[in-house]
Each structure stands twice: as structure tokens, then as C-alpha cells.
Amino acid sequence: MSFGRTDNAKGVQALLMSFALIMAAPFFAQQAHAQEKTVAQETVAQKAAAPGAKPAVLKTESELEKRVRAIGSKLRCPVCQGESIYDSHSDVAEEMKRLIAEKLKAGESEAKILDYFHDRYGNYILMEPPAEGIHWVIWVFPLFMGLMGLVFVMQFLLSNRQEAATEAKQQKKRAENPQTLHQDIEELHL
């Protein structure tokens, strides 16, 4: 039996290790990246410092670009019709992104920019319908569906449960009193 136990311990070990791996995996990526980025920058710096090498300029994404992404991801490209304008490479989408950037530079708020496009292209330009007017339907529907389904399944299970309980009671009665068996059969014939 000791043999078995060792193997079992091995199994638990394997379990814990796999568990750790699974848990760690998503941030592994993040952590590794956060630490190593400084290393990369050093490498870059070394390379830049090497004699004869042109100094490399590390460009980081501007705050502006981040805000353009935030807005552009909420707007749907009107010609590609499935993608957001941020993801799309089409001419109209590119021009819209440039316009968003200009408007942001001019100090306009995100809401105001979204309104600008909404006024000109209608609800179609938004990636999801606004929760107003008739469009409440699409937002409430999933919740409604879920509740309906739950109620239906619960009702199904509970009604069966009652039936099962009465059946069990009858069976018990039958077992106690063989005469009722006869009665049951008569009932069935009716």
C-alpha cells in the first residue's frame, strides 16, 4: 500500500504543479514582460551607444492614440460594416480616425465626438445600440431569456419532484397494504 501512497503523492504533486501553471500562465506573460522591458531598453541603449550605430529612438504610443482607440472602437466603419473604425483600414475609417485625433487636440470631449458622428450617421455608426427607446429590448432580452429559462427548468424539476414524491408515497402504501394494489389497477382502467 505504501507503493500506492507514493504514487498518489506524485499525483497530487502533478496536480498542484499543473494548477500553478494554469494560474500563473496569464500573468506570466504580463510579469515577464514588465520586468524584461527594462532589459530590452538597456539592450537598445547599448546598441545605440555602440560606435557608428545610429541612435535608435523608441517611440511609445501617444496618449492621443490611446484616446483615438477608445473612441474609434466604439464606432462602426460604415463601409466594412462589421469592424470598428479603429480596426478598419478603409479610407473612410482612416479619415475618421484623423478627424477624431484633430478634435481631441482641439480639446473636445469623447462624448462630444461620439455625438458628432452619431448626428451625421445615426445609430448605425455605434457598435452597439444605445439603451434608449425601443433598443432597450436588446439589452433587457438576455436577462429576460435567462430568467425565463431558469423558471422553466426549475418548474420542470420541482413538478417532477412532487410527482416523484406522491409516487413514492403510493408505492409505500401499496407495500403496506396489498389491497390498494387492486384499487390502483381499477383506477388505471378508468
Partner: peptide
């Protein structure tokens, strides 16, 4: 030239 006026009028094609 940039299509800005087109955006102003909600033109997409």
C-alpha cells in the same frame, strides 16, 4: 481633398 466635408454630411461612399 481630405473628405472632411463628406464626413460633415455623413457621406460614406
Amino acid at each position: 481633398p481630405q473628405g472632411r466635408l463628406a464626413l460633415e454630411f455623413g457621406v460614406y461612399g
